[in-house]
Simulated scan of single mutants.
Amino acid sequence: MWSPVAVIVVGTVLDAVTPPPYQFQRFLSAAPALAAVVWPVSGTLAIGGCAVVAEIGLALAKGTLGTAPRLFTLAVTAIVTLAAAYGCAARLRNERLVAELTAVADAAQSVVLRRIPERLGRVEIATLYVAAAAQARVGGDFYEVLHTPYGVRALIGDVRGKGLRAMGAAATLTASFREAAYDAPDLVELAGRLETSAVRYSGLQPDPDDAERFATALLVEVADDEPVARLVSCGHPEALLLRDGQVRVLEPTLPSPPLLLGAVAGIGYHVDTTELRAGDQLLLYTDGVSETRDRSGDFYPLPDRARSWTAVPPGRVLARLHEDLIRYSATGLDDDVAAVAIRAFDPRTQAPPGDRSPREAGVPG
């Protein structure tokens, strides 16, 4: 912050105390250039003016004001000051633009990744979203959890691709789920409604790469009146069931196609049912978790790591998952990461244990 001032002070002192062969005053032209990086335009011009005044004072003290080298140095400092002021103005414009774009991205992100209540029905919930790039605000990963007349219904998915098109598809699928989850009588119907929305959105957004565009999704329904969970996996990574120090991979009995490929494949959607007792926990995640690699190229062994998390609340499960992924990855996260942890409890005999720890990293869930 104060480096421009330090350059002027140090350059002036050194030039004043050293013999004529040394020309430390030439370093003064660096002061306005440094100021342009962190100071406003007015501050940059003020620093440049101070540098010029310091050079004139040194020239007067040494009787060299009218010499060609001194005049050349003054001209260079003046030109650098004007150029630095112009660059500073451009930097400030870019910063304002970035701030505006960030606000827009945050608004768009809040549509896809809204804050999820910590408790719905007979389950506790925590969510995690981490963008692969530090500057990224939105991507193709999405999730939603709703309490419907059929129980708690959850969706997690991943649109193939990056950027605004992927985010638009994710927003479309999330909005479709929010509408259909309340009246679709079962998960097969719900998956079909999502497939229809995906096809319609793709038709409104023609693209030469649409033949390779699809979205994986995992639908989960936790009944309010019975200890079961129902799942439909549309080409998505399998959910994990955490129970009493053990982890079970909930592989689908019959594979279901990813969204946008259902009509092409001609395959229907299949519902799997699993017991979900009080204390059991479901861990849903995108392939940004399972495809993280270490330095030797090995994939992240999520089921093995999750065995030590079966007794901790959902928020801490996801916090440990995030920390473990960072440690495991060789070069940082190469893909967006989204995860949802759902833990069942019996509302007739116990209150939810609660989880006041940070529930996520990235964005509010």
Results as ranks from 00 to 15, higher is better:
330 A>N: 08
276 L>M: 12
356 R>N: 11
320 R>Q: 14
16 A>T: 11
21 P>Q: 09
318 L>F: 09
42 S>P: 00
51 A>D: 03
102 T>D: 15
102 T>A: 14
213 R>L: 12
261 L>H: 07
206 P>K: 08
138 V>I: 15
242 L>H: 06
80 V>H: 01
128 L>C: 07
294 D>W: 07
279 G>P: 10
137 R>S: 13
243 R>G: 06
201 Y>Q: 12
277 R>N: 13
199 V>C: 10
312 V>I: 15
313 P>R: 13
233 S>D: 10
38 V>W: 08
180 A>M: 11
275 E>P: 03
200 R>S: 13
32 P>M: 08
256 S>K: 02
78 A>V: 15
246 Q>F: 05
203 G>L: 12
339 A>H: 06
88 C>V: 02
136 A>I: 06
86 Y>M: 09
125 I>P: 00
133 A>Y: 07
15 D>Y: 07
110 S>P: 03
43 G>N: 07
348 R>Y: 09
48 G>K: 00
236 H>M: 09
252 P>I: 05
141 D>W: 04
282 L>T: 09
170 A>P: 03
179 E>C: 12
31 A>S: 10
160 R>C: 13
94 N>M: 14
267 I>T: 15
219 L>T: 11
134 A>H: 12
158 D>K: 01
43 G>C: 05
77 T>F: 00
18 T>C: 12
313 P>N: 10
37 V>M: 14
364 P>S: 13
253 T>N: 12
257 P>A: 15
339 A>Y: 02
74 L>R: 04
117 P>E: 07
259 L>N: 01
183 D>N: 10
290 S>Q: 06
30 A>N: 04
189 E>G: 08
51 A>K: 00
105 A>T: 09
254 L>F: 12
33 A>C: 12
288 G>I: 03
199 V>A: 14
114 R>N: 11
